[in-house]
Computed example of a mutant assay.
Amino acid sequence: MRKLTTIGFDADDTLWHNERFFKLTQARFTELLADHAEPEHLDARLLAAERRNLGRYGYGIKGFVLSMIETAIEVTDAQVPAEVIRAILESGQEMLAHPIELLPHARDAIEAVTGSHTVLLITKGDLLDQERKLAQSGLGELFDGVEIVSDKTEASYRRIFARHGDGAERAMMIGNSMKSDVVPALEAGGWGVYVPHDLGWALEHAPTPSSHARFMELSDLGGLPALVDEIG
């Protein structure tokens, strides 16, 4: 009997570029507020706002834009010019329209395990934006199921892998976030495969579970087929 029957892929910065657009927008935000706050101070205030607002707005571009507006109001003592607010909103609209660029080996890795395994896309964030990116990626037809969740937890992985497969114990989750993709998948009883990305978000950091028997790391998705064969 095959040990591994279900494979889940994260989307943003695992299959396609995403964080680069947040970094570019944040750099623009720093320029807009240059007269009111030093870059490091502004970055810290924005990160604090994002952390506070996760429970209100969830993950994604819309929450990021609202956190930028909130931070702009705070650092200007509620004196932020209307044109700055407008520029922040326009930056968010540009992010929501950015083209999709696949990361190396993304399509090949998915195609290598389709047919032999149940293949899922498991992502979090704004529903409309995630659906747009999946449609533009050209990868949609390769997945047996798509789950867009508000957060990735042990419970959500157990539920998803039970619904689409043979349970978390026979499932693997692949992604660039230790906090969201790897650790909760391991806690659910599955394999957690970390594929690092050059850019990362501070709120997605977590200690590496190096001693866990089911934790694995790949430099890129090109090594996935061999890893899947090794597990059996």
Rank of each mutant, 00 (worst) to 15 (best):
T114N: 01
L186K: 09
T71I: 15
V182C: 05
Q93D: 13
Q136A: 04
H98G: 00
V65H: 05
E94Y: 04
E90K: 09
R56A: 11
V80C: 15
T208E: 10
V84G: 01
L103G: 14
D166N: 13
A112E: 05
F215T: 12
I110M: 12
H41E: 10
D129E: 09
T25Q: 06
V193D: 02
L227T: 06
I61G: 03
E50A: 04
R86F: 06
G232E: 14
R159F: 07
T114A: 06
V65E: 03
D129V: 14
A171T: 00
I174V: 08
A168W: 00
M1D: 15
A162Y: 01
L89N: 08
A49M: 11
R51T: 12
P39W: 07
A168M: 01
G115E: 08
P209Q: 11
R51M: 12
H164P: 02
E217W: 03
D77R: 07
Q93C: 14
R45K: 10
T153L: 15
F21H: 05
L32R: 00
Q79G: 12
D151M: 10
I160R: 10
R132G: 08
G125M: 14
T6Y: 02
T208F: 15
T118R: 06
V146S: 15
I110V: 13
D144L: 08
P39G: 02
E187A: 09
V113Q: 01
A188H: 01
M178D: 12
S137I: 06
I61M: 05
L121I: 02
E147Q: 04
A37F: 03
E101F: 15
R170M: 01
D198G: 15
S156F: 09
A171V: 00
N53H: 06
E50D: 03
I85S: 09
R170G: 00
G175Y: 02
A82R: 06
A72H: 04
A27S: 09
P184A: 07
A171S: 08
G165Y: 01
D220K: 11
A78R: 09
T76S: 11
I100N: 08
L103Q: 13
L139G: 11
L227Y: 05
S180R: 15
A82M: 14
S137Y: 06
E169D: 03
G55K: 08
V146D: 05
S137D: 13
P184L: 11
R20F: 12
R52M: 07
A106Q: 05
E70R: 15
E131N: 14
G232A: 13
L120I: 02
L224T: 06
E74F: 10
N18C: 14
L199R: 05
E217P: 01
D43Q: 12
A202L: 09
A188Y: 00
G223M: 04
R214Q: 10
G58M: 04
I174D: 01
G167D: 01
R107V: 04
G92P: 09
R214M: 00
T6K: 00
L203E: 11
D229T: 04
L227V: 03
M68C: 13
A49G: 08
I100D: 13
G145L: 07
S219I: 06
Y157L: 10
M216C: 09
G232P: 05
P207H: 07
G63P: 05
A106T: 07
F64P: 12
A155S: 14
L227D: 08
A188F: 00
Y194D: 15
S150V: 10
E74S: 11
I110E: 03
F143R: 13
A27H: 07
A171W: 00
G145P: 09
L121Q: 07
